[in-house]
Design a protein around this nucleic acid. Structure first.
Length: 254
DNA sequence: ATGTCAGAGGCACTCTGA
């Protein structure tokens, strides 16, 4: 079972990239983030052999799951006080797995209500993830977490010091999810590999210099550890003309 | 502060978010 995650920074602008990549890599499931529009090209994916579920909003955010296997929709928003008006969460059941796609709030700039929203969102995510641990179904939470977990996950910590993605509060919350027992699939298989990133700024040839950050993650419930086969970052789409600023991460489970 | 890209509104170009 191959599950991929890709923040595409507009599905409309990136549809050819996504189609070509699906045809080439052929994962069973693809989690998409930052669709940036209300129209989702369901028919395009159906023609490629994938069914899809999407939660969208005008101009911003938006997440979708496309799958070769039947998808049973469970929830389109994170539980908690108040209604989340942002399209950032999608929980489905595919085969024997709970598959959760998240686009965690960016939170910049720090010291604003945007940063508070990010922390609140992470607290609510934690509550859900604790709940899932008590269920019989194994859980994969994937997507754009907008968190740089450790110093090793960025090219130069000093240049991210004032950024919401690198603040102690979100990083502590991310570590808290690991303390619950969830496994960071990529880091567990590559414990000390440096320079492994999923996002590079469009500015100043960041990709060419590998000045990036690792913010797209797969967290696995503990029972999946024995099924974890590989987790790799596919940098090829980031080299194409007009790329997303993120590149896909691909998880393989037995 | 800068750098680049995408969408929205509305038809030139600024604004927002990332």
């Amino acid at each position: 079972m191959e599950i991929a995650s890709w923040n595409v920074n507009s599905i409309k602008a990136r549809l050819d990239h996504v189609k070509n990549w699906l045809e080439k890599r052929g994962p069973d499931i693809l989690l998409l983030q930052e669709l940036k529009g209300v129209d989702f090209p369901t028919e395009t994916f159906r023609a490629l052999g994938y069914e899809s579920v999407a939660v969208t909003q005008k101009a911003y955010n938006g997440v979708a799951i496309v799958s070769r296997f039947p998808v049973k929709s469970v929830s389109q928003s994170l539980d908690g006080l108040g209604v989340d008006t942002h399209a950032r969460f999608l929980e489905v059941i595919i085969k024997d797995l709970r598959v959760v796609n998240i686009y965690l709030p960016n939170g910049n700039p720090i010291g604003t209500e945007k940063f508070e929203y990010k922390l609140d969102w992470m607290d609510r995510l934690r509550v859900q993830m604790e709940r899932w641990l008590t269920s019989e179904i194994a859980t994969v939470v994937g997507g754009d977490f907008n968190v740089i977990p450790e110093d090793i996950d960025c090219h130069k910590p000093a240049s991210w010091i004032g950024d919401a993605l690198f603040q102690p509060e979100p990083r502590e919350r991310y570590r808290g999810l690991l303390e619950l027992g969830y496994i960071d699939a990529f880091r567990s298989l590559h414990p000390s590999e440096k320079g492994q990133f999923t996002f590079w700024d469009y500015f100043r040839q960041a990709f060419e210099h590998n000045r990036g950050i690792r913010i797209d993650h797969f967290l696995l419930s503990p029972g999946l550890s024995s099924r974890l086969k590989s987790c790799v970052i596919d940098k090829i789409p980031r080299r194409l003309p007009k790329p997303s600023d993120h590149t896909p991460i691909v998880l393989t489970l037995d």
